[in-house]
């Protein structure tokens, strides 16, 4: 295979990766930040970084786990580098919890069920808001992205035991919020 052909094949492979995983990365960042514009920007940065490092991707983990790791690091870097601006921006642009909880798919529910579901979603958002950065990341990866514990451990760089501990605390917080004991 000529180098040009290999390059073209790699480019095609990356294009399919972008097409397949972009919505998930965006969803994870949106849930983490509650800011559509910021989530879009970081999603773009994530894929730009992935494209630059695509030839170094050895396939030790799945492409999704690798991309998620990049997204988590980007979010962390953004927070570290622009601590003040980040929070100022996030506070200014983040969608209010009630508004975020308004989104529900139109399932076969009556008005009462819809209202109950909205209330539950708002309570979960409230609990998520008070989680630490790591707890939130682990919680979202597990219960929104439905990732395996081993994948979460790989993506976050934590051990599976630590992931379980963070999940347990996060779940405890959500449970307490739903029971109205917080």
């Amino acid at each position: 295979m000529t180098p040009e052909a290999a390059e073209e094949m790699a480019a095609r492979g990356f294009a399919s990766i972008v097409e397949g995983h972009r919505p998930q990365i965006f969803r994870f960042l949106l849930a983490s930040l509650r800011d559509v514009d910021l989530a879009e920007t970081l999603t773009q940065e994530c894929f730009l970084k992935a494209h630059r490092n695509w030839k170094h991707f050895r396939g030790d983990s799945s492409a999704m786990t690798w991309l998620m790791r990049i997204a988590i690091n980007l979010q962390k870097d953004y927070w570290r580098n622009r601590r003040v601006q980040f929070w100022r921006h996030t506070l200014a642009h983040a969608v209010e919890l009630d508004e975020a909880g308004e989104w529900l798919p139109n399932g076969e529910r009556n008005a009462e069920q819809q209202m109950l579901a909205r209330e539950q979603v708002a309570q979960v958002w409230k609990a998520v808001k008070h989680l630490s950065e790591r707890q939130r990341t682990v919680f979202l990866l597990r219960y929104v992205e439905e990732r395996e514990l081993s994948e979460i451990a790989q993506a976050t760089g934590l051990s599976e035991g630590t992931v379980k501990a963070h999940l347990s605390r996060a779940l405890g917080r959500v449970r307490a919020e739903l029971r109205g004991t917080l």
Partner: peptide, 27 residues
């Protein structure tokens, strides 16, 4: 099984559905 509590499980299902709907609309 991990969540145990059906009420929490339902709330988390709704939360996931809500985030997905919002993300899809924004995307």
């Amino acid at each position: 099984v991990e969540i145990e509590d059906p009420a929490v499980a339902e709330a988390l299902n709704n939360f996931k559905a809500s985030v997905s709907a919002w993300s899809e609309a924004a995307y």
